[in-house]
Nucleic acid binder design. Sequence first.
DNA 1: GAGTGGTCTAGACCACTGT
DNA 2: CAGTGGTCTAGACCACTCC
Lengths: 264, 264
Amino acid sequence: MATGKKFERIAGELRAQIRSGELSPGAKLSAETKLAEEHATSVPTVRQALALLQSEGMIEKEHGRGNFVRRPRRMVTRSNDRHQWEKDRVTADLDVRSSAGSTEHDTGLDVDALVFSAKYTRVRADAEVADALGLEQGAPVLERIYRTWHRDERSPFNLVRSYMPIDLITSNPALLDEANEPWPGGTQNQLHTVGIELDRVVERVTARPPTAEESDELDLSVGIAVMVIEKSSIDTNGRVADWSEIVLPGDRTASVFTTKLERW
Amino acid sequence: MATGKKFERIAGELRAQIRSGELSPGAKLSAETKLAEEHATSVPTVRQALALLQSEGMIEKEHGRGNFVRRPRRMVTRSNDRHQWEKDRVTADLDVRSSAGSTEHDTGLDVDALVFSAKYTRVRADAEVADALGLEQGAPVLERIYRTWHRDERSPFNLVRSYMPIDLITSNPALLDEANEPWPGGTQNQLHTVGIELDRVVERVTARPPTAEESDELDLSVGIAVMVIEKSSIDTNGRVADWSEIVLPGDRTASVFTTKLERW
DNA sequence: GAGTGGTCTAGACCACTGT
DNA sequence: CAGTGGTCTAGACCACTCC
């Protein structure tokens, strides 16, 4: 036997066929029973091979229909120039600010194509949030949970948890009411209403398999990773005005960061 | 039955035990045969539940030893200030440049703790590389393949493919010889020897499951994602002097990007 | 209803780990 | 050698899709 393991050999053959283009994106694989016959093996062994390919993101299984070669997903690009872009709009007119937010800036879609949900809760900072915001554990913070959908899709393409110290924003009660979402001009405009200017944004990017809950909410097929961005917005006094955890499906998202260097 | 699916119910129970701390990191789970008995089911069903938890990165299977709750990995942080840091060192003395490179800067380890391999090949740009470098397809480029290990580990913690237009660097033949690696001061110093200064670095970050080959080389256990950084180094004339693809294990790497904003 | 994948069973036999 | 996980088989029965 080639590799020694039958299911790896079967997976290897199919993988080669997919890479060579013999099986092109969207193509239907032979039925599992047929593959089992062809490779003189049992169905469970074929299924083990297919599970491996699925975990590599090479095929998609569709119950009752068949197994298919996975089509590459069109990527949404999220660029760090969004932060300066949003800052520049803070002082713009209301109608300009209402016309598009950072997400529209990224996706190139207009406001009508995106659906948006926001939920605000006043909570006490747990260890993670307190650490990120530089507060004592238990300090009062505003938790904001966001979801964004393409209008015609059933599952959101991002999950966002944002935290702000309550002290920073109580001077403008409108900021505590989720009914005001989507806020024209975004978080930086919100902060501007209470006299806060951002100096820099620090983003920490990691990749990991989704938790069971994320997999559910984002409707991720097995074997898709998520990209997690932990974003700290730091104001001109060095305080963290906002800390957000942004969970994005890895197969649909690219993040672009430009680092400008000082000239000699 | 709770969820309807037996293996999901079993996975759910174990997941809850792990999250609550009842099963702590490193703890050994009951044997599969025992779990099967306890849940009044067959071993394959238990194995299906364990495979799910493995794909979520919650457990690790060790052949002949048992199934264990996964310990969180210590993360290596890669920060985008590395680029300015490397630029500042371009004009430093040789002994300073030899003392540490960007990887040491990131990991906080010294030169002795890291092992390094480099392989240079002159190749013709394929569509991807040509597009990234702004060249015609088939243009001659220098391909550099890098691997970095912790000295006492058997598999590398990154895979790097770098491409530079040959034209830019032929004026210094030393740049074409892999025997000169690791080059003191890194790529920015190499470019400096042929009169090139970098203006900015653009990094595109994605997350995806590893290919079979990457999984092999990085010795990734099932269900771990990789982070891919496509890095373009752009010089003061707007040319792409170097394009690299950097593959990092998602469970061991965080990338930090700081975006400085202009003041009002 | 025909075709296809999903869940689950029961068990043989092999491979690896540690005593 | 005992304990444990890995591979593979053979097949029953269920769930979903599409005609």
